[in-house]
Design a protein around this nucleic acid. Structure first.
Lengths: 205, 205
DNA sequence: CACTATAGCGAACGAACGTTCGGCCGCTAT
DNA sequence: ATAGCGGCCGAACGTTCGTTCGCTATAGTG
């Protein structure tokens, strides 16, 4: 668009491509993301868009990374200062629910969609998505583990099981909101989480 | 393949197309299903395959219907003779888990994938998937409602909330099995369901 | 035994896919 | 001032997409 170009402009172009790419992919899917569509959306040529990335797969991988940055910034960082353990776990649950109710991308949570889309398609994209999913899982489990160690959750509580069920509530919320357009999804997810954690969960950071 | 053709053969061809279509779509996605790929898989020509359906969207819709038949037959029918209420609800949960652990399609549960893929894509396919999802949801809720009415679940239990959380456990199981390849997913889902229902849940019809 | 209906094939269509290549043009550095 | 670097474009590539249009060959009907 802008007639000026420079290294700074190039970086901004790259960011715009990735942001738009994540937005489109959250709706159409990461595989349904096409160079031509993306270029048209941004008023660029296909070659100019593909240039900084080299291939579609490379573009996909960097879109996933960009979406992971957004995910982390929107959900984790706002509650990172809460005391480790139950307080932080409850806070991140509330933050997570808020993110699904008011998502950064038009298609809702990017990773819920990407995880389902690539769970059976081997390759670098799946590996990357899986890596982020496991990192997130580990982070939550660590908070759950501390909550149990601190005595804030009943002794004998299995942190892995707790994370499994919390994740399930988030996935159910995603489906309730995006497919069924159920306005009660948020309160149901919060209620389920509160029962698992023994403390209130509210959809805010 | 077979040199003979007849009305009966045509029906069998149609079934083969839909079966293979559902299998491919469970992995590649319903949108990623292509006529050429499907025709090559079945040793047919593209035109011969598209003939009985007329358009790709019509094919997609009939693939969804075929997958719904399989879903219903594999999960609901084996437990339809259980007494309505908690017994049937617990049985269908076990049947549901078994289906996810040993799915009829190579990509796992067709509807988990389709719901996520089309949740943000308006059109007939989304409408059809949503219709089946709501029908399933209603069926489960009815069993939950009866279980409460029968006194088999604590008074004041919200059937809708119960179905929401059961669905969440299934979605978490799908992700654990297909993305994370977690061998403990089945037992975790059953444990969560048993806690919600107050009775054991086992992954068998 | 001819007659009709139809399942499926083969070829072709325009459009869109991802990718490559050469050149323009504005920035940066000498 | 000028040389060079690099972001981006325009055009074209070979492939695959969904779809259409005759055609053949076979199965059921009189």
């Amino acid at each position: 668009m802008s007639p000026r170009s420079s290294l700074a402009e190039a970086a901004r172009t790259r960011s715009a491509i990735l942001a738009r790419g994540a937005a489109v992919a959250s709706v159409e899917g990461l595989a349904g993301l096409t160079i031509g569509r993306l270029a048209a959306d941004l008023g660029m040529s296909k070659s100019g868009l593909l240039g900084p990335f080299g291939s579609k797969e490379s573009l996909q991988l960097q879109v996933v990374e960009a979406a992971a940055d957004v995910f982390w910034r929107e959900i984790w960082e706002p509650v990172a200062d809460r005391p480790a353990g139950l307080a932080r776990l409850a806070a991140v649950c509330g933050s997570w629910v808020r993110y699904l109710a008011d998502p950064a991308f038009p298609g809702g949570c990017f990773f819920v969609a990407a995880a389902s889309e690539f769970d059976d398609r081997p390759g670098p994209v799946r590996d990357l998505v899986l890596g982020y999913a496991e990192r997130w899982h580990r982070e939550l489990r660590e908070q759950a583990r501390r909550a149990v160690a601190d005595g804030d959750l009943p002794a004998g509580t299995d942190p892995e099981q707790l994370v499994f069920e919390l994740t399930g509530l988030v996935l159910a919320l995603h489906q309730a909101l995006r497919l069924r357009h159920d306005p009660d999804g948020v309160s149901r997810a919060c209620r389920g989480m509160a029962r698992l954690l023994g403390v209130p969960v509210q959809p805010t950071a």
